[in-house]
């Protein structure tokens, strides 16, 4: 796979990352979705909010990791489950005004404001995250066969949210190693129905997404 303008993209990402880390450390609300399946029946959904201290830690790792990443073209995203936090999804067009200047000036307040304004002006990312999470927790379950066989792992699903809120082109980006888990995750995503709400949140844009689904067995 190739990236059309990796260098340009890298610079852009680096800059806006800095900006967003700063912004997020101030505004972010972090949400982990944990779906616990007890035996066969009850599904508990746990939505936990954490404070933003993790974001600061992650910012520190930014300069070390950056150079190496340039050369790794096929490394799959491996989000750390424990520290995974909010990801307000912010879509921006290249031709839109970007908060790079603000970042260069290292002005935290400006950066934050810009981010918020940007996200508001395009799509309501918090709302998308929230809708997806609620919907996903409704449909995701641990397949019994996988539970029985002690199978666990992480599958990365990629899909596109169309401007009408429809979720299409669901594909396995990276397999968990077990087809039962991969298929269960795809099926769950297929069942999502809140198109109207998603359409409102997405505000006429088209959004490509990657969703990591982690299947994990716990000792009681």
């Amino acid at each position: 796979m190739t990236c059309a303008a990796p260098h340009k993209a890298a610079v852009f990402i680096a800059l806006s990352l800095v900006l967003h880390f700063i912004g997020l450390s101030i505004v972010s609300v972090k949400t982990d979705v944990v779906i616990t399946e007890q035996g066969s029946a009850n599904i508990e959904i746990e939505l936990s909010k954490k404070n933003s201290s993790l974001t600061t830690e992650k910012s520190k790792s930014l300069p070390q990791k950056k150079p190496a990443s340039h050369h790794i073209a096929t490394v799959s995203p491996r989000p750390l489950i424990k520290t995974t936090a909010i990801k307000p999804i912010i879509e921006k067009q290249l031709d839109e005004p970007r908060p790079i200047a603000a970042a260069n000036n290292d002005r935290k307040i400006t950066a934050t404001t810009t981010t918020q304004e940007n996200s508001r002006s395009s799509i309501d990312t918090t709302k998308i995250t929230s809708i997806l999470n609620t919907e996903l927790s409704r449909y995701f379950h641990y397949p019994r066969a996988a539970q029985r066989r002690n199978w666990q792992g992480q599958v990365l699903l990629e899909f596109i949210i169309l401007s009408d809120g429809d979720i299409s082109q669901i594909k396995v980006n990276k397999s968990s190693g077990y087809s039962i888990l991969d298929n269960a995750a795809m099926e769950a995503l297929n069942k999502i129905e809140q198109r109207t709400q998603l359409a409102l949140a997405i505000n006429g844009h088209k959004l490509a997404q990657v969703l990591p689904v982690t299947y994990r067995l716990i000792n009681h």
């Binding site: 796979m1 073209a73 799959s76 995203p77 379950h141 490509a208 990657v210």
Partner: peptide, 24 residues
């Protein structure tokens, strides 16, 4: 993590990464 952002960009510049759903 920054590394995942970069690699995901290089793999497919148009995709964003959602928070993981953890099914237990």
């Amino acid at each position: 993590l920054v590394s995942s952002i970069f690699s995901s960009c290089l793999a497919n510049a148009e995709q964003g990464l959602l928070n993981p759903v953890i099914v237990t």
